[in-house]
Amino acid sequence: MKKNKANIIKRRPIDIVIDTVIIVFFSLFTLICIFPFYYLFINTISDNDLVSRGLINFIPQGIHFSNYVALQNVTDLGSSILVTVARTILGTGLMVVVSAWAGYMVTKQKMWKRSFWYRALVITMYFNAGLVPWYMNMLMLGLTDNFLAYIIPGMVAPYNIILVKTYIESIPASLEESAVIDGASTPRVFRSIIWPLSIPILATIAIFGAVGNWNSFQDSLLLMSNKPQLYTLQHRLYIYLNTYSNLGAAMSSSGGVSNTAIQNMLNTKVVKYTISMVTIIPILVVYPVMQRYFVKGIMLGAVKG
């Protein structure tokens, strides 16, 4: 503040009032944004008895982490985590590779009917046949109750392809030309020149893709109705949130851990909070990394073809 002394002197009293109001407003809004995270967290680490009586509002009491340990008894949670991790890694990896390759290919003016194919690809961002025809199509392709349904449809992401294309177009063409003169084939140019130079944009789409995969809920809900072991974590959480009472039963029947832990966990509220926290934590972990890519990432929604 000191270095802005000149400015401060110029400020009129009304400005100071306005500045204070703005700061108070933003502080409050920030508080509202982070409070649910905090509230859930303190409730998962506090004494379960106090939590069930609703006494933990701002300050954690009787801190312990056994709720997180006891989660291993929640039926089906393990498979959901496995499925979600697998789809996040595989789905994101393939999406990035396909986007990079497709983004590179659509920069090739020499391709047969390039602009036609490119337009056909881009229009799919704005047009879809509708939920039910899409579902019937997945049924027809045998991609219901099938793990591949999480991976294959997400491989071609037009937004990301456009993003990569725009980025590649900004790479000096001379780099590619010199490689071609040295006899490099198209895949070779892609591997040795385009891929390494596009890492910044690929990292952007990778991280946003990974968050999207981690948060995926709709495809699991629609397509996996007969295979509960393939539910994603969000879908599992949704089910837990909507079945208050059965959760305690599911936990106590599975057994295996000391009775006190189970007794503590019988509180469905705590179970829900803890599962929610487990679902959030990976997002919070990658969040600081993501922030670096924000400005590029928001362009995801605002690029034009």
Partner: peptide, 22 residues
């Protein structure tokens, strides 16, 4: 170049255009 791009088009067709048949 077209043949190298074709797999992407194939996937697009499968998941974005084929549903119209529904």
């Amino acid at each position: 170049l077209f043949l190298m791009f074709m797999p992407v088009l194939f996937l697009t067709f499968l998941f974005s255009y084929l549903p119209i048949y529904g």
